[in-house]
């Protein structure tokens, strides 16, 4: 080969095309398309296994014991909760180690900001991809719920954006935390103190009314609680209570605050 073909002169015109943040989204989508097998369990199989184990297994015990929850069979009750919990799972797992990897281990974010992209593009690309992926998973989940006859009305389709919003309300603060961590051990502590309690107490498996009053008050603060409430209301068709807009607003607040601190965290780690 002649090295002339490698010449770099005369190519100084940058192509103007896709906005830089879209290129960042494309990057994440591409990496996912090559490595999706590794997340098939946590991202897709796990929610359905939970659905069968909780809904059918424990459900048979619950239905026998107390005839369901809030007037519906336990499977119907737990399914929307698990939808939101799946968003928690994906939102957290995709915003913790992958962010640390980009910042610290493989340092791929540093590769990105050496190109026309800047740190803000990287953040948008990260969160936008989570929203896209979670919407896809939520769509599959809601479709399965439809097949099992767990959807009360066509309104249930709105559970998909509701689920995606839950994912964002969780992943943006998780990203903000991840940008301020240095190793996987401290991330593990974050899981135990933040994610696990949310998963177990935010109303996924039982109504909040079963909790002592003080604990219920604490649980209401969690972003996942709003996500569960919203998804459940939409799939069980408990009527569009105006308080649901509070839930939406509250999740947007979590997203916004998380976004702000993610941005400052990214700047601190990437721009220096």
């Amino acid at each position: 080969m002649t090295l002339g073909t490698l010449s770099t002169r005369g190519s100084s015109q940058p192509r103007i095309g896709w906005p830089t943040w879209v290129r960042a989204v494309w990057h994440n989508a591409f990496v996912y398309s090559k490595t999706w097998r590794s997340s098939i369990v946590t991202g897709l199989l796990e929610p359905f296994m939970y659905l069968v184990a909780m809904g059918v297994g424990i459900g048979s015990l619950v239905n026998k014991g107390s005839g369901g929850v809030d007037g519906v069979p336990y499977l119907n009750f737990v399914a929307p909760g698990l939808l939101a919990a799946t968003m928690l799972q994906i939102g957290v797992s995709d915003s913790s180690f992958s962010v640390l990897g980009g910042l610290k281990w493989a340092r791929t974010y540093f590769a990105a900001i050496a190109t026309p992209l800047n740190y803000h593009d990287v953040l948008i690309g990260h969160l936008a991809w989570i929203a896209i992926r979670c919407s896809a998973v939520a769509t599959a989940f809601v479709a399965v719920m439809g097949v099992f006859g767990l959807l009360a009305s066509p309104l249930a389709i709105l559970a998909i954006p509701a689920a995606a919003l839950s994912a964002l309300a969780i992943s943006s603060p998780t990203t903000a935390i991840a940008t301020r961590q240095d190793d996987h051990l401290s991330m593990t502590v974050v899981f135990r103190l933040g994610v696990l309690p949310m998963f177990l107490f935010a109303g996924v498996f039982f109504p909040l009314s079963r909790l002592p009053y003080w604990l219920e008050a604490i649980v209401q603060i969690l972003p996942l609680t709003s996500g569960v409430t919203l998804c459940r209301a939409l799939t069980l068709h408990q009527g569009l209570h105006p308080s649901l807009f509070l839930n939406i607003g509250y999740m947007l607040l979590w997203f916004g605050v998380g976004y702000y601190f993610s941005l400052t965290g990214f700047r601190k780690r990437l721009v220096i």
Binding site: I16, R23, F30, K34, T35, A106, T108, F110, T115, P116
Partner: peptide, 26 residues
Amino acid sequence: LVPQEDTLELELSLLDNLLIYGRYFD
């Protein structure tokens, strides 16, 4: 830029690494 640390996508192939990087430049 060839940074001090390689910052490559370890799980992707060599070709895919070039592809995603080229895409950053659109």
